[in-house]
Design a protein around this nucleic acid. Structure first.
Lengths: 208, 208
DNA sequence: CGCTCATTTGAGGAACTTCAAGGTCAGTGG
DNA sequence: CCACTGACCTTGAAGTTCCTCAAATGAGCG
């Protein structure tokens, strides 16, 4: 079984639902739902976040096109939401697991996806005990890398989302970005949302 | 193959090396080594941590007896160290993966271990944007749960380790614990290292 | 006891948050 | 074409939390 890619493709197609489109700030799933489905991002940005009893929100992770995720345990009760307009694929978890037990390539994809997500979560932990300036610089540089190192960085998510991801207020984030700009490390051309990372060496130094 | 637990046990035995004992603060592995081995904690506490260029240390995770870990990607370059005197098992990664592809039980153990580690990392991220008092209360309560909800909580790792895990200074951690004590939520009986969590409801409230 | 190391406590300063106001930009309707 | 609106971002000033530095206290051990 699955001796050729074509039959693998057919089996995968049978497991997926979508692409489903969501508008910005729509809830895609609560993580009770994610117990049954993995998500694959086709376009746009997805965030997983948590609202505390105190009303404060934390963004745990951003997922970009090509990311496969949904391993988060149900006890965290995270909410999966569209950070921009998005399209995502829902993939039956049990079906994919069964497939993985028969096809090593599938198993490797799942293992790689999970390991990557763990590594990113650990880097996130490390980031949270750095200064605001360092957090902002690291976030922008990482995002630029994840989006393919294009000439300009079009930041797709709102500053509020970024601030909640970095554990800062939106004001502190704004000030930090302004400091980076005044230091000549980045520039905003021509508008807010489009950034040019000018001095990668300097950014690396700020990132520690 | 592996139709019975006995043959599974034999195969597992062939993959493991140890138990190996380490004294407190010994380096168990750098994560280039962890690329080849998974670690299983027999006794004591293991920490994974990172020293920045600036000299500051962060503890990414603590592993307790029964924990299986080592999925961290090599690009983080974490150091795996003994937070107390410990005994650990080294398990050949490739061998265990091969085993997992043939035995669903093994695959499930690996998946569960990885998912748990991811969930803990995400909770850690959430924790880092809370107040010092909340972080301390959450850490102590979680540790108490992970250690089996014994009557007394014998904190096994140093305050410095805990502070580096929580992204606080050792002084702020100490003050936070003192505040919890003065609020009657915890008590130190009879010495520093042994704590009694007195008011679980109150602790839950501080944890938010 | 007298050493060392770990933890606690205090006072002052730095970083971040809060609250409040001003600015920018895209969309809408006159 | 221009003013109006609302969402989003930026800036300023005051307040809070946490950090830094310094010293004191406590625990463990020869």
């Amino acid at each position: 079984m699955f001796g050729d890619d074509a039959s693998l493709q057919r089996t995968l197609s049978a497991l997926k639902r979508g692409p489903v489109r969501f508008y910005r700030d729509n809830v895609i799933a609560l993580d009770e739902d994610v117990a049954d489905y993995l998500l694959f991002v086709i376009s746009g940005v997805v965030r997983s976040c948590k609202i505390c009893e105190s009303g404060t929100r934390s963004v745990v992770s951003f997922y970009l096109p090509g990311d496969l995720f949904g391993w988060t345990g149900p006890k965290l009760s995270l909410s999966i939401e569209a950070a921009t307009d998005t399209a995502v694929l829902f993939i039956k978890r049990r079906g994919l697991l069964a497939l993985a037990s028969r096809d090593v390539r599938v198993a490797n994809v799942l293992l790689t996806a999970t390991t990557n997500e763990l590594a990113r979560a650990q880097e996130h932990v490390l980031l949270m005990s750095k200064s605001a300036k360092c957090r902002a610089a690291t976030f922008l540089t990482d995002l630029w890398v994840r989006l393919g190192k294009a000439k300009y960085l079009d930041v797709p998510m709102s500053h509020q989302d970024i601030a909640d991801y970095l554990g800062l207020t939106i004001e502190t984030l704004s000030r930090s970005i302004t400091v980076l700009e005044r230091s000549g490390l980045i520039a905003r051309i021509p508008s807010q949302r489009r950034l040019l990372l000018q001095n990668h060496f300097g950014l690396r130094r700020v990132m520690n």
